[in-house]
């Protein structure tokens, strides 16, 4: 059965990864025999008031200037970020920041606050109003290097992870990330464990992020209260923790300071994180640390098993 597609709309359909059903998988064991790797991934973002129009879509919900939604997002940097930092300090959370690197330029104080806490900084592009859609390979490479250099300059860290700005991609993004030395992508949502990704050369793995247990979906598109969202987080955790005993699982908690920084949302979220951290089988780590453990111990095993031994292909 084929579905006719006009020739000018035909795009390649790359085989991104291997079929690997949840049944009968070999186990992943996290350090010290832990069963679930838990990482917290706040998106620290800058949305421009008057961004240029890209090829694919408008940046804002309302006719520009969309001051209402700009204000909501700017709240994250003026107020929400700092509340979040207090919460993480109090709970002992080591964050992995999905960063629009322009934040480092606009708000150097936020850059310092993150670097001082030794939070991992990974890429969420430059601005959340500039998308990767439509970039040429040369442009995309320059874009990746801009992000990598910006993070290194402020924190001394090597860029390891990539969540495309507003989750926008070209067909070359994943190949390009591997070529530029990025270790893990967060743009694929197909699994609850790390998986190898097929790339043209080098190595790339996917690390579980979440569009389901994400404050944006829990609180905004899903329109839950903070208590509803906290319940989602606990349910997600309970299940992954149980399955982690035999499989080894990853739970990501993606957040946005402009959603969780509000007074009416603070306590339920803090309680949910505390609940997770109170389990002895939890390895609370950064994205980079989880990725490194997987790459060191399991990536080649999975490539051999899933791709028949050919490296990433």
């Amino acid at each position: 059965m084929s579905y006719p597609v006009p020739a000018d709309q035909q795009q390649p359909a790359p085989d991104l990864y291997a079929w690997n059903p949840w049944r009968n998988r070999p186990r992943i064991e996290w350090p010290d025999g832990k069963r679930l790797a838990f990482w917290v991934a706040p998106n620290v973002e800058f949305y421009e008031l008057a961004p240029p129009r890209g090829p694919a879509r408008a940046s804002w919900f309302r006719p520009e200037p969309d001051v209402l939604h700009y204000g909501i997002r700017d709240y994250g940097n003026r107020v929400g970020f700092w509340r979040m930092a207090d919460m993480f300090d109090e709970l002992g959370v080591r964050a992995s920041i999905s960063l629009n690197v322009a934040v480092l330029d606009h708000f150097p104080e936020i850059g310092r606050a993150m670097a001082d806490r030794n939070w991992e900084l990974f890429s969420h592009g430059v601005y959340n109003t500039r998308y990767q859609y439509g970039m040429s390979p040369e442009q995309e490479r320059a874009f990746i290097r801009d992000v990598r250099d910006s993070i290194h300059r402020v924190s001394g860290q090597e860029l390891a992870g990539w969540l495309s700005p507003a989750l926008t991609n070209t067909p070359e993004t994943l190949n390009m990330l591997a070529e530029e030395g990025v270790v893990y992508t967060l743009d694929l949502f197909h699994d609850d464990q790390p998986q190898p990704v097929r790339v043209r050369s080098g190595k790339l793995m996917s690390l579980p992020y979440s569009l389901q247990v994400n404050d944006w979906t829990g609180l905004h598109t899903g329109a839950g209260t903070a208590r509803d969202y906290a319940r989602m987080i606990r349910d997600q955790f309970d299940r992954l923790y149980a399955e982690g005993e035999t499989l080894g699982t990853v739970m990501a908690l993606p957040l946005h300071p402009w959603m969780i920084g509000y007074p009416h949302r603070w306590q339920p979220l803090a309680d949910a994180i505390e609940y997770i951290l109170g389990h002895e089988g939890v390895w609370h780590a950064t994205g980079r640390e989880i990725a490194a453990h997987y790459m060191t111990h399991y990536h080649d095993r999975d490539v051999a098993r899933l791709f028949g031994g050919t490296d990433g292909r």
């Binding site: 890209g54 090829p55 500039r130 859609y133 439509g134 970039m135 040429s136 320059a142």
Partner: peptide, 11 residues
Amino acid sequence: MAVDPSYMTYA
């Protein structure tokens, strides 16, 4: 395929 170069400059 490429975006306009202005899309990758940040005033």
